[in-house]
């Protein structure tokens, strides 16, 4: 059973090695810039900012 735990540990360590380097790489290479554009990425020409995209048939404004 300890073999299983050790194997899982090594696999997960190997799978995640360099993550700290990856982070500092990403931070210094402008991966976190232009966050405003990121926020707007859910919109497009057909459903642009300013256009609500959910409406329900309402004859009157009851809840």
């Amino acid at each position: 059973m300890f073999v299983a735990v050790t194997v899982i540990l090594i696999v997960m360590l190997l799978g995640s090695v360099g993550a700290l380097f990856a982070f500092s790489w990403a931070a210094t290479h402008q991966q976190f810039e232009n966050l405003e554009a990121a926020a707007e990425s859910i919109f497009d020409a057909d459903e642009p900012i300013g256009k609500p995209t959910d409406n329900f048939i309402t004859d009157s404004h009851e809840s």
Binding site: S16, G18, A22, A26
Partner: peptide
């Protein structure tokens, strides 16, 4: 490429 770093990041926090 960008997703790769996000992936490594969230798996490391999990680890």
């Amino acid at each position: 490429s960008k997703f790769r770093y996000i992936f490594i990041g969230f798996m490391l926090t999990f680890l």
